[in-house]
């Protein structure tokens, strides 16, 4: 039981890291970014590239992989999303573009690294054993990193001009423009933060399990569930939603075969939609 709870917190931290970006990007760009999971995968593979193929130590490799993933999302905004926005593309167009982008990223990954599992070059790590309850060092690392990033995000949103402008934009885009807020610039910050958080989630996922081309795609459903549970557009809700989904998934393995894990997030997703579609922290 406690063992499952611990697994759940680890999984939940990874889901939360993905959910934060998905939620912010939806809120500020009106874009349901179906490629978000694949950015998690990309972050893991780029880290793998620096770590295993180029022999850098894992921390440096992860930093490079994560930053590079963020930079790629900025470039994509400049060459693609901004053009669509300026043309006034509707949400369906944006959605289909995102699905297309997801496929492109995944296929490029398969093309480059093949379809089978890979793993980081890890220093041998021991599991910590507390009276029979196992905690892996990567699990501890995951929770610590996720917690630090969430605190950092909270500080950004509450204390910096950019963060306040993000909240202003999520309140009222038209007023933000009228006020003189540089909307395109704030959108770039949103991509940068959202996608690099996703990449961190992907790397942590790879640390705890393995790296596969479809890992992000399969993380997307629990991430959606977390976003909706926490109230779309609320990064704090996404954090809590992620943890709840992660813990529910792992706890379910006590009574259900573990292949049903993913169904758990699906059930939660549907229940939230039926009972409280605005999410647990939603105001309306």
């Amino acid at each position: 039981m406690i063992q499952q709870l611990i697994f759940g917190i680890v999984t939940g931290s990874i889901i939360a890291l993905g959910a934060i970006g998905l939620s912010m990007i939806y809120d500020i760009l009106d874009l349901v970014n179906f490629a978000h999971g694949d950015f998690m995968t990309l972050g893991a593979y780029l880290t793998f590239l620096f770590n295993v193929s180029l022999n850098l130590n894992l921390i440096l490799a992860a930093a490079l992989g994560i930053i590079l993933t963020g930079v790629i999302s900025l470039i994509l905004d400049k060459i693609m999303w901004k053009k669509l926005r300026d043309k006034g593309a509707g949400s369906i167009t944006l959605l289909i573009t995102a699905i297309g982008l997801a496929l492109v990223i995944r296929n490029l990954i398969v093309f480059q690294w093949g379809g089978s599992n890979v793993g980081f070059d890890l220093p041998l790590s021991q599991n910590l054993n507390f009276h029979g309850i196992m905690i892996s060092t990567s699990g501890v690392l995951t929770v610590v990193v996720a917690a630090l990033l969430m605190i950092a995000l909270d500080l950004i949103l509450r204390k910096t001009k950019i963060g306040k402008a993000m909240r202003a934009l999520s309140d009222n885009k038209n007023l933000a423009r009228i006020t003189g807020i540089n909307v395109d610039n704030i959108i770039l910050w949103t991509w940068g933060i959202g996608t690099s958080f996703a990449a961190v989630g992907g790397v942590l996922y790879g640390l705890n399990t393995v790296i596969r081309p479809d890992m992000g795609w399969f993380l997307l459903l629990p991430i959606f569930a977390a976003v909706i549970l926490g109230g779309i557009g609320n990064p704090y809700g996404a954090m809590v939603g992620g943890l709840i989904i992660g813990i529910s998934q792992e706890m379910s393995t006590i009574i259900l075969p573990s292949s049903y894990k993913i169904a758990v997030s699906f059930v939660i997703l549907i229940l939230v939609m039926l009972i409280k579609p605005e999410g647990i922290f939603g105001e309306k």
């Binding site: 001009k161 306040k164 402008a165 909240r167 202003a168 309140d171 009222n172 007023l175 933000a176």
Partner: peptide, 14 residues
């Protein structure tokens, strides 16, 4: 004509 989830001070700052 305001940002409702921002504080008074933050609205002015924007």
């Amino acid at each position: 004509n305001t940002f409702p989830s921002l504080s008074v001070r933050e609205n002015l700052e924007m």
